[in-house]
Amino acid sequence: MTWADWFDQFAFFLVGGITLLGAVGVVFAPRIIHACLCLLVALIGVAGLYGLMAAHLLLGIQLLVYAGGIAVLILFAIMLLHRRGEGGILGGTRNLIIGLPATVIVWFVVAAAVIFSKWHYLPGGATVSPPAGSNVRIIGELLLSRHLLAFELVSVVMLMALVGAIIIAREDKQPGRNTPGTTGVSPVGSRTGETPVLPDGVCTGGEDESE
């Protein structure tokens, strides 16, 4: 083995090890905020793996969007929730007795399938060496030709998710006006109780029946 091979080995096992450590933390960290930080580590590790596979554009995007965006978004959400969730068992894990064996079985099945499958080069198969220059250009061209439909579609999905997230998350102004039917919501429970618990919708007919 040459020095380059040794470097490959070292880099893969180092970055892969960090990623896996992060993943372990996501499962077992006792507090949710720590689990989220572990996810951040795992995400950065995955970015490193992309780098080892010469996917430089993905490396950048993984760091910017995933580690910088999504993970931080989740952190913010945790901090917003944390006021009352502090302490307690809220962050902990349950069902390890069921979950662990099930996961181990899944791991063995998938790993066996991966190991014993024949993975084929595509026709005109290439070498494993990374391309000489950057491959960003190729991805850009693919996005606007072969994957044009997906590219357009993802923009629509983003618009939709934006609208949806705002609708769900924004605080309704509690109407001080005359909406008696909507304010008297029983907070929890009363599933079986016969009280009408559909505040905005079904209950209390009689206001504007003319429609």
Binding site: D172, V188, V197, P199, D200
Partner: peptide
């Protein structure tokens, strides 16, 4: 599904 935000269900 979550459109009726005041409804806990």
């Amino acid at each position: 599904t979550g459109y009726m935000k005041r409804d806990p269900r």
